[in-house]
Design a protein around this nucleic acid. Structure first.
Lengths: 333, 333
DNA sequence: CTGTTAGCGCCTTCAA
DNA sequence: TTGAAGGCGCTAACAG
């Protein structure tokens, strides 16, 4: 491996000067600089990033600890983050926590031992990793979900409001018996969206019926099972609000399997868009989230946090958008 | 920051012994080991990964350079890779090349300066980065696509055969005027799948008609435009074979926009599954690829390449599977 | 089995 | 403006 010493020798200067030329700072005699550049080119020299990291005691890595890399919601978010990282000279290390607190904690450990510059994390239920990172004062941005008792930079959407809008839309359609499939009680988005559901009901004078609520795991199979359970009720719901995309897919599959259709047999609104929602027939009404923007804003906050670790934490709340399509708008009603 | 020296002092041994205890190798007196562990716990010591990397002159990072992180094909693949990485003690750095040779080359540079342990890469059209990495002898696995003139470990699917099967299925359905929307001519998968299309036609004695072939960019918008162009023909096609998932989505959207339906107005087969293909109505016939397995096998090859850099390159070719659903099977014909 | 020692490659004072 | 030198934290030789 060619080192900075080889370049120095070749160009007849000291390693310090080579370093200065390469890092572009300080004043260096242009003639020397040129010699150095020439030597770099001739030798095909490439600085050793690891050595630089050790010396500077910081790396140019960001970790993205997310709970399901196969969910398009997170994919798009990661892309927004990666775009910021790239322009800021960072790389993104992908950490798939699978909603598993143990995995999350393991990744948090890795973040610390590998001296990563910062973390963007969507906390799992018990948020073990978040607490660890918070304590270590690692630059961290929470995304998608809050963690009780942790004051940190966050990028969220207005979950309660988005849910309220969705359910109000169903109420406006004349539906009264509206079910809700939401996520684990430990996850803030699950509870915030459920709260929005309740708020909409109470705003319309419809009483809350716990029998119509199911908690699942934010995955397809969970949505399927919850739907099946709701259909088993003596008096099944007329309408359904599902608080994430994959569970919506599961619910729709359950309906399809039983020959039931939205919106004629049951109206459906999902939280979070599906990539080709308009190809699903009938097109699915959703509460869309600005996923790319969520990731992008997280990247921006992280950069700012790294630049100034002492600034007070800030929270960005982005709006959702109700996309009314066919599954909530029957022709006859 | 607490260092290995602090632990050594605290436990009354040398730093070397601490290192030995922590890395779990060599025999160390259990009594000493225990003391060390105690000191580690008391001090909350955490080894500095960067220093270790410098000393060992290798990191525990793998790069995944892929051409479109938002395509579920790559997402699933990355997940397979990440699962192997995790069990092998590596982390995956996500690099989204966006099909842009310049970005690919920039990431290849980063791989080298950051001394990453290996790379899994889906080459962009000109494969600038691949050549750079190949020359530098970085452990590398090509995935999804070949690169002319580069002998390297590869994980591919049997593209030509998969395409032939798909088109033969359409021919069996009685279709003769079959169009093909494929990717950029520089990308091996685009050409291999096109070759499969031609092989099927010629096997059935149907002559090849270049007017029925379109090259697009493997993205949704490209598929849409290509479909529009095909529909503009004096004599539009009766059936369509599209060589990737996103372009299929684009083509279907174009059809939907014009009130055309598959399979009644035009039969459709896509290459590569869509996550909720069965919710798309009518369900889409596809050539499914084992995406997760592609990523997993790439991880396995990379590990082996790192363990033995001199072994001859090997190529894994995985089978595709034709999933016949509704868009290629009209009721009346 | 344990300790001493010498770097890994770079950057950054400090002195000239 | 440039060079000399120390050290970031760790581990692998080498001695003991």
């Amino acid at each position: 491996m060619t080192t900075i010493y080889d370049v120095a020798r070749r160009s007849g200067v000291s390693p310090a000067t080579v370093s200065r030329v390469l890092s572009g700072r300080r004043n260096v005699d242009p003639a020397l600089a040129e010699k150095v550049q020439a030597a770099v080119a001739e030798l095909g020299y490439r600085p050793n990033g690891v050595a630089r990291n050790l010396r500077r005691s910081s790396t140019n890595l960001w970790a993205a600890v997310i709970s399901d890399i196969e969910n398009p919601f997170f994919t798009s978010l990661v892309r927004g983050l990666e775009d910021v990282a790239q322009t800021e000279g960072y790389h993104v290390v992908l950490c798939n926590s699978d909603e598993d607190p143990a995995k999350e904690a393991a990744y948090a450990s890795a973040v610390l031992t590998e001296q990563m510059a910062g973390v963007v994390i969507s906390p799992s239920s018990t948020a073990d990793g978040v607490l660890q990172l918070h304590e270590a004062k690692t630059p961290m941005v929470l995304i998608d979900r809050k963690v009780a008792g942790v004051e940190a930079d966050s990028v969220l959407v207005d979950n309660e409001h988005g849910a309220t809008e969705a359910v109000r839309h169903l109420l406006d359609g004349g539906y009264r018996r509206i079910a809700c499939i939401t996520g684990p009680p430990q996850v803030s988005t699950a509870m915030d969206r459920l709260a929005g559901y309740r708020a909409a009901l109470s705003g319309a004078g419809v009483s809350y019926d716990a029998d119509l609520v199911r908690h699942a795991d934010f995955r397809e199979a969970g949505g399927f099972a919850a739907m099946a359970s709701l259909l088993g009720l003596a008096e099944p719901p007329e309408a359904l609000f599902v608080t994430n995309n994959l569970m919506t897919v599961g619910a729709l599959e359950c309906l399809a399997e039983r020959g039931l259709r939205a919106p004629d047999d049951i109206a459906v609104v999902g939280f979070d868009d599906l990539p080709w929602a308009n190809l699903v027939v009938p097109p699915l009404t959703t509460v869309a989230q600005p996923t790319y923007e969520l990731g992008r804003r997280a990247g921006v906050l992280l950069r700012e946090r790294i630049a100034d670790p002492s600034r007070p934490p800030s929270t960005v709340i982005l709006p959702t958008e109700l996309n009314i399509r066919a599954t909530s708008t029957p022709r006859t009603r």
